[in-house]
Amino acid sequence: MDIDAYLARLGVARPAAPDLATLRHLQERHLAAVPFENLSSHLGEPVELTEDALFAKIVHRRRGGFCYELNGLFAALLRALGYDASLHAAQVFRPDGTLGPPLDHAAIVVALDAQDWLVDVGFGRFARHPLRLSAVDAQPDPDGEFLILDAPHGDVDILLDGKPQYRLERRPRPLADFIPMAWWQTTSPESHFTRSLTCSRPTSQGRVTLSGDKLIETVDGVRHEVHLPSPAAIRLAYRVYFGMTLTRLPVPPGGSPLTHDAPQPDTALT
């Protein structure tokens, strides 16, 4: 791995030591610099869960990705920097409180200072700082209050502001274990990722999300939504807000007149 190129993508200098403060800074910068996005499902691109393919996409092409991609590559970076980092599978809680399938999500656990820390840069809105898995009290974070609860079979449940997010396995898994579920997530008509289009990242004041032709900014808890009138405006939003230069636009589920992406001059976003 070209560590310096990856750190440059995050806007971070090479750290002096693999300590907790550095881990926290790396997580914050990764979330801010690399968006959570599912564009590949709507661009007809295969998702390849190999370190080389992920590095080419996220670092060289300056794209984002979803959990298997973002946490898979970030875990490799952390190991290259001297951290004891492993991937762990999770089942995501549905809105009705039931659990999704096994390996529905991939997160990172870092063993550091005789503690296990949950690090996740691939779940959309989630903790911006590492969470101590052995903590019995709620842990405050810029994106809410997190609580870790024991679950059956030695797993743990992660709650955000009292709402269950996912159930995390305690045993590590190689990245290759997630290949079948990643294929299902990006191809099945039943998958949330094929039924929605999103590109999102946190900001210093909230979050910015681009979903099709809707640009949504949350600033200090107040939501602002703007309709983007043309393909050129959408491409400009990807570049301005996410640092992504797209040669073609993803096709939203069901299609849209805006998918007729004829070259046009860049226009204002509002």
Results as ranks from 00 to 15, higher is better:
residue 55 F to A: 15
residue 125 R to G: 06
residue 23 L to T: 07
residue 172 P to N: 01
residue 154 G to T: 07
residue 216 I to L: 14
residue 233 A to N: 11
residue 93 F to L: 11
residue 191 S to G: 08
residue 191 S to I: 09
residue 9 R to Q: 05
residue 223 R to H: 01
residue 171 R to M: 06
residue 231 P to A: 13
residue 120 D to E: 10
residue 68 Y to W: 02
residue 80 A to F: 00
residue 191 S to A: 14
residue 247 T to M: 13
residue 55 F to L: 10
residue 127 A to W: 02
residue 55 F to T: 12
residue 98 T to D: 03
residue 21 A to W: 06
residue 42 H to K: 13
residue 18 P to G: 04
residue 182 A to C: 15
residue 36 F to C: 13
residue 116 D to I: 05
residue 60 H to F: 00
residue 124 G to M: 14
residue 138 A to R: 15
residue 80 A to Q: 11
residue 67 C to Y: 08
residue 233 A to Y: 01
residue 63 R to N: 06
residue 42 H to G: 08
residue 217 E to C: 14
residue 9 R to F: 00
residue 111 A to M: 01
residue 162 G to N: 09
residue 165 Q to P: 03
residue 173 R to A: 14
residue 52 D to A: 15
residue 170 R to H: 12
residue 63 R to Y: 00
residue 232 A to D: 03
residue 32 A to V: 01
residue 107 A to T: 12
residue 169 E to R: 15
residue 255 G to Y: 03
residue 153 H to S: 14
residue 118 L to E: 04
residue 257 P to G: 04
residue 19 D to Y: 02
residue 49 L to D: 02
residue 140 P to T: 06
residue 188 S to P: 13
residue 138 A to M: 07
residue 257 P to V: 04
residue 12 V to L: 03
residue 105 H to G: 11
residue 227 H to M: 03
residue 134 S to F: 00
residue 78 L to E: 02
residue 206 G to D: 03
residue 63 R to W: 00
residue 231 P to W: 11
residue 105 H to Q: 07
residue 13 A to R: 13
residue 28 E to D: 10
residue 59 V to K: 10
residue 124 G to D: 08
residue 79 R to C: 13
residue 199 C to G: 13
residue 6 Y to S: 14
residue 199 C to S: 14
residue 41 S to V: 10
residue 252 P to D: 01
residue 258 L to Q: 04
residue 38 N to F: 07
residue 246 L to H: 03
residue 269 L to T: 01
residue 17 A to E: 09
residue 255 G to D: 04
residue 238 Y to N: 11
residue 199 C to F: 08
residue 97 G to V: 08
residue 230 S to Y: 03
residue 250 P to S: 11
residue 219 V to K: 12
residue 3 I to V: 15
residue 16 A to K: 07
residue 249 L to K: 11
residue 116 D to G: 07
